[in-house]
Deep mutational scan, measured.
Amino acid sequence: AQEYRALYDYTAQNPDELDLSAGDILEVILEGEDGWWTVERNGQRGFVPGSYLEKL
């Protein structure tokens, strides 16, 4: 798994998404072809927009 940093804040719109704060460090589990990536942070897993992340 790769570590990424959130570039922007994101507020989850659905229960299966995660909130992001700019600067958060996340582990990317799966890069979805639809642009939604499965990530894990502090034991929580959910979808976030891949375009909001940069690889560390």
Rank of each mutant, 00 (worst) to 15 (best):
L7E: 04
E3A: 07
G46V: 02
D16H: 15
F47A: 13
G43F: 05
I25E: 08
L56V: 14
Q44K: 14
G32K: 12
Q2P: 06
R5K: 14
K55M: 11
D9R: 06
L7N: 07
I25M: 15
T38Q: 13
W37H: 06
I29L: 13
E40F: 04
P15N: 09
Y10D: 02
L26G: 07
G50S: 03
V39A: 09
K55A: 07
V48S: 01
P49G: 00
A22H: 05
I29C: 10
N14A: 10
D16M: 13
E27I: 15
T11P: 04
E31V: 14
Q13E: 10
R45V: 11
Y10L: 01
E17I: 01
L30N: 15
N14C: 10
E3I: 15
S51Q: 14
G23F: 01
E40P: 01
T11G: 08
K55P: 10
L20H: 00
T38L: 13
V48K: 00
N14L: 08
R5D: 01
E27P: 05
P15M: 10
I29W: 07
L56M: 10
S21G: 09
E33N: 13
G23L: 01
A6P: 00
S51D: 13
L53D: 01
N14T: 13
T11M: 10
I29P: 03
I25F: 07
V39Y: 00
L20P: 00
Y4P: 00
A12M: 04
W36L: 14
S21E: 14
R45Y: 05
Y8V: 08
I25Q: 05
D24E: 12
L7G: 03
F47I: 15
A6W: 00
G23R: 01
Y10P: 00
E54W: 04
A6I: 07
K55E: 12
N14Y: 09
E3H: 13
A22W: 03
A12L: 01
D19T: 09
Y4Q: 02
D16V: 07
E40Q: 08
D19N: 12
Y52K: 05
R45C: 05
E3Y: 15
L26T: 05
L26N: 01
N14I: 04
Y52V: 10
R5F: 13
E17P: 00
Y52A: 11
E31K: 12
T38R: 12
E3C: 08
G46H: 02
F47C: 13
G43Y: 04
W37A: 09
N42L: 09
A22S: 10
S21K: 15
D9W: 02
R45T: 12
A22E: 12
L20E: 00
D19Q: 05
R41D: 02
V39F: 01
D34H: 10
V48C: 07
T38G: 08
Y10T: 02
L30K: 14
G32L: 04
D9G: 08
G43R: 07
L26I: 14
V28G: 05
E40M: 09
A12G: 10
E17L: 01
I29Q: 07
G23E: 04
L30F: 14
A12Q: 04
R41Y: 08
W36G: 04
N42R: 14
I29T: 09
I25A: 08
R5H: 05
A22T: 13
R5P: 00
T11W: 06
E31N: 06
A22I: 06
E3W: 06
Y52W: 07
L18Y: 02
F47H: 12
A6C: 11
K55V: 10
G46M: 02
Q2Y: 10
D19I: 01
D9C: 07
L26D: 02
P49W: 04
E33S: 13
Y4D: 00
L30I: 13
G43L: 05
E27T: 13
G23C: 02
R45E: 07
E27G: 08
A6R: 00
I29R: 06
G43V: 02
E40A: 12
D34P: 03
L30T: 15
N42W: 06
Y8H: 14
L20W: 00
W37N: 04
D34V: 03
P49H: 05
R45P: 02
N42M: 06
P15S: 12
G46T: 00
Q2S: 11
D34Q: 09
D24P: 00
P49I: 06
P49M: 06
G43T: 06
E3Q: 14
G50E: 15
R5V: 11
V39T: 03
S51V: 11
E40R: 13
R41Q: 08
L26S: 02
D24W: 03
L26E: 02
D19H: 07
D24G: 03
G32E: 07
V28I: 06
A1Q: 02
G32W: 05
E27W: 11
A22L: 06
S21P: 01
Q44P: 02
S51E: 13
W37V: 13
D9E: 07
L20M: 14
Y4N: 04
A1D: 12
Q44D: 11
R5Y: 13
D19C: 11
I25P: 05
K55S: 11
G23T: 00
V39G: 04
E31W: 05
L30P: 02
D16Y: 10
W36Y: 13
Q13F: 03
E54N: 04
L26Q: 03
Y10F: 10
R5M: 13
A1Y: 15
W37R: 03
L7I: 14
Y4A: 10
G23N: 07
Y8N: 11
E27M: 09
G50R: 13
Q2F: 15
A22R: 12
V48H: 00
W36E: 05
L20N: 00
R5N: 05
G35R: 04
S51A: 14
E54K: 06
D19P: 05
D34M: 05
Y52D: 02
D9Q: 07
Q44H: 11
E27R: 14
V48G: 00
N42F: 08
Q44A: 15
G46W: 03
T11K: 14
Q44G: 05
S21A: 14
K55C: 08
G35H: 03
Q44S: 13
G35S: 05
D9N: 15
A22F: 06
D9T: 08
E3D: 09
N42Y: 08
D16S: 14
D19A: 07
D24Q: 07
T11E: 14
E33H: 12
A6H: 00
W37I: 08
P15L: 09
R41L: 12
R41T: 07
L56Q: 15
E54I: 04
Q44E: 07
Q2I: 08
W36Q: 08
L7S: 07
N14E: 09
E54G: 07
Y10Q: 01
N42A: 13
A12H: 05
E31F: 09
L7P: 01
Q13P: 01
G35P: 02
V39I: 05
G35F: 03
G43W: 02
D19F: 01
E40C: 15
A1M: 15
L26K: 00
G35A: 04
I29N: 05
L7R: 11
D9V: 02
E40K: 12
A22C: 13
Q44C: 07
W36K: 15
L53F: 09
E3M: 14
Y4H: 07
S51G: 09
W37P: 04
G32N: 13
Y10E: 00
P49A: 02
W37S: 07
D9A: 11
Q2R: 11
A12F: 00
L18R: 02
L18H: 02
G50C: 14
N14G: 11
Y10C: 02
G35I: 02
W36T: 10
A12V: 01
L20A: 02
R41P: 01
V28P: 04
Q13I: 06
E3S: 09
A6S: 08
A1T: 12
L30R: 15
F47P: 01
T38S: 11
G46I: 00
